[in-house]
Write a protein that binds this DNA or RNA. Structure first.
Lengths: 200, 200
DNA sequence: GCATGCGAGTGACGCCTGTCACCCGCGATG
DNA sequence: CATCGCGGGTGACAGGCGTCACTCGCATGC
């Protein structure tokens, strides 16, 4: 019997996944949580074998949850189920020691199957995503990432500068570098591309 | 017996919802589709009582599906189930004659209940969203919307001008108006705000 | 001890943006 | 008929953006 905790912020999807998993005779859904903090509490209370979690959740993300589990060396395997086919996310997930990474685009039957594989000690990584993950490295450094994130919210170089206690010109230099590295022509495209790749 | 067709692009969510609905004794899921065109074909083949559909799908969106059903006067009620709490979407949905509009944030039990209400001839609209929908009207006209969409992809005024066969300056005028109407300070914020409100 | 590299900053250049006042043609409305 | 209103355009201005060359200080590494 595989004992599972489910973390997913959209209630309807959470309920539906729960119904789906409860149809499997060898899987038992112990409970579910709507955000990262709740999941962390339930994790300690219910001590499941497996955590099935989304990435984007209020409070703590699924990736952060996985990191915590890894640091505290809890005997709980993690399977990520997410919308985002972003190579950067998968890489961070693997660094956080997760055993499974599926896309919500994959057929529903895959989920139970992946959970069994993981429970047996294996790994279940979406195949075409696994390829991409190691093909392209994130070219941005911390500053560039930071600046690009703020620029993507519509802030001007000046705004960003005050916020990061940098100079106006330096911010523009960072943005220029980021734009160059990504091979695009302006901050908007740079933001979109970086976001899509999961480099945020 | 309520005979249903399910349209949702994410396979895992589609499968899970299907499992959820099949647990209800008075609901029968006739089939499901992964994109708008497939849904339209299945609709004509299976002639369900009810279409449960997402909005954002490849090809035809859920809103466009609802419009088609309305125009062809098919005897099929529509329930929208979506992530997007955007007032503009709800308004367009109601214009397209849908009977239900739920958020994926709502509890899973609501779905079956809403479907029963709609099947009985009633309406099931997410309550707090219904309020917002009539509170704020979309201030943008067609040109402004068009220009803003392209600007959001990182295109410059010049690029947009050639694409729409307008002049460089006119594009900037439209953008300026849009920025003013939305009460923000640049195209990036304007794009984000308009998108978030569902005005696209 | 010197070179190398890196984070941060400066200043200047040209193009792009956002704003505004104003113009033109045309269809609707009185 | 006159006159609005409206879609589209022009030209100008200030300020923002993207680029580049160069500087400075400070930590590393031989």
């Amino acid at each position: 019997m595989i004992r599972v905790l489910l973390a997913e912020d959209q209630a309807m999807v959470r309920g539906a996944l729960s119904a789906l998993l409860n149809m499997e005779s060898d899987i038992e859904v112990l409970g579910s949580a709507a955000d990262g903090e709740a999941a962390w509490r339930e994790l300690q209370r219910l001590k499941p074998d497996l955590l099935v979690t989304d990435i984007e959740m209020p409070g703590l993300t699924g990736l952060e949850l996985a990191q915590r589990i890894q640091r505290q060396e809890l005997p709980i395997k993690v399977v990520i189920v997410t919308t985002f086919a972003r190579p950067g996310f998968l890489r961070r997930a693997l660094d956080a020691g997760v055993s499974g990474y599926l896309l919500k685009d994959a057929p529903a039957e895959n989920l139970a199957e992946a959970m069994r594989t993981v429970h047996r000690g294996g790994r279940a990584i979406d195949p075409q995503l696994a390829l991409e993950a190691w093909s392209e490295a994130d070219p941005l450094n911390d500053r560039e990432r930071q600046v690009l994130r703020l620029a993507g919210e519509g802030q001007s170089a000046g705004d960003i500068a005050t916020q990061l206690s940098l100079s106006h010109g330096t911010v523009r230099n960072y943005l220029s570098e980021a734009i160059g590295k990504l091979g695009v022509t302006n901050r908007i495209e740079a933001y979109r591309l970086a976001r899509q790749k999961g480099w945020l």
